[in-house]
Simulated assay, not measured.
Amino acid sequence: MDIRVLGSGPPDPFLSAADLFETEFSLDLPVRVHVREDPDERTWAGHYPDHHVLNISRQAATSAMARELALHELAHMARYEESHPSHVQKTEEALFLALAGRSVERRKLAHCYQIANHMKDIYADDLTLSVAPAEKLVCFFESQLAAAVSDRPPAPRPDSRRISPAADPEITAVNAAFALALCERHDLLTSDHRLYDLAHAAADDAPQVGLERFKSHFASLVDDPTESDYRKALVDVTREYCIREQQAAD
C-alpha cells in the first residue's frame, strides 16, 4: 500500500495501520495523510480519481487511538473502491425520498446525515474488526457515550429555550443504539457490560427515540446489500427518526 504522511504528523500509527490492513485487504489507489491543526476536525476520508486522502487532527494523530482511527478510514477507502452501496450512493437522494413533502428542522436534518454516517461506519468496521482487536473501540464507545450522557441538558422550564451546547439527547440515544448494534454484530459485549447501562440512560433521556428500534435498524444491515436494499434501509431509518418520532411527540 502506498501511504504517505504529509506535513509534520507522526508516521508510525499510519504505517502500522496500513501493515495490519494489508493482512486481509488492499487498496488500489495511494493514500495521502493530511494532519490538521484543528482538533475538532477529527478524522475523515476523501476520495479522488487517483488517490485517497485521510484527514486527521493532530490531536487524534498523536492519541492512543491513532492507529485504530487510521485503520477505520482505510476501511472506508476499501468500501469506496469496491463500490459498496453505502459508500457510493448519495445520502441526499435517500433523504429526499424519505422526507419529501415534509418540513424538518435543521437540527434533525443534520442528525439524519450522522445516522447515514453510522450506517457507513457499520460496513467499514465490519472490515476493521476482522483484522484488529476490538478492546480500544469498545472503550472508545464507552467513554464517548458516558461523556454525552453526563453532558445532557437540564430539564427546561416551560417558558425557556435550550441554548446550552450540551449533548442533544435524541442523537445521543441513536448513537448509543449504533454502538450497541456494532458491538453485538461482532459479539464484543458481555451481558453486564457498562455500555448497556449507559445506552439505557441515554434512552431514558430521549424516550421518543426507540433505542431498540434503532439498534435493530443498524444491526440488521445485510452484509452485501444491493443499491435498492441500502437505499430502502436508509429511507426507513430516516423516516423512523424524523416522522415516527414526530408522531410520537404529537
Rank of each mutant, 00 (worst) to 15 (best):
V222K: 08
C242V: 14
A179E: 00
R244N: 09
S164C: 13
L95C: 06
D159A: 13
V209G: 06
Y113A: 02
V31P: 04
A206S: 14
P165W: 09
H47T: 12
V5S: 11
A94R: 07
L69R: 09
A167Y: 04
N175R: 15
L195Y: 02
Q89S: 15
Y80E: 05
L29K: 14
W44V: 00
E93W: 13
P30S: 05
V88N: 08
N117H: 07
L189W: 00
S86E: 00
S216F: 14
A98N: 03
L189I: 01
A167D: 10
G9K: 10
L195G: 05
V174M: 11
D192V: 02
E212M: 05
E41M: 10
H34V: 14
V88A: 03
L99C: 01
T190E: 11
H72I: 00
A75G: 01
A206G: 07
I122F: 04
E93P: 00
F96V: 10
R161P: 01
S191P: 00
L27S: 08
A202R: 06
L74E: 01
Q144W: 14
T226E: 08
T172V: 10
A134F: 03
D205Y: 04
H76V: 02
M65S: 14
H111Y: 08
Q246R: 15
Q247K: 11
M77L: 01
A146Y: 08
D229K: 10
L15K: 04
R185H: 13
E240P: 05
A219D: 06
G7R: 13
H87V: 00
H118C: 07
P49T: 05
P133L: 02
I163F: 15
M119L: 10
R79G: 03
L234V: 13
A124Y: 07
A98R: 03
K215N: 04
P11A: 13
L27W: 02
L145G: 10
E24T: 12
P165I: 12
D125Y: 09
A201D: 05
R102A: 12
E68L: 11
D192M: 02
A219I: 12
Q208T: 13
V149N: 09
Y123I: 03
S143N: 15
M65P: 01
A132T: 04
P207S: 11
T226G: 10
Q114W: 05
P165S: 14
A167R: 09
D121C: 04
E73G: 03
D38V: 02
M65N: 10
G210R: 08
G9L: 05
F214E: 09
S63M: 06
N117C: 00
N117L: 01
L95M: 10
R157N: 11
V31D: 01
D2K: 11
S16K: 08
T238W: 05
D204Y: 02
Y113D: 01
P30I: 09
E227R: 12
A206Y: 07
K215F: 04
S16Q: 06
I115A: 06
L189M: 00
H47Y: 13
M1K: 05
Q247A: 11
I115N: 06
A64E: 15
M119D: 06
H186N: 12
A203H: 12
N117D: 14
A147C: 09
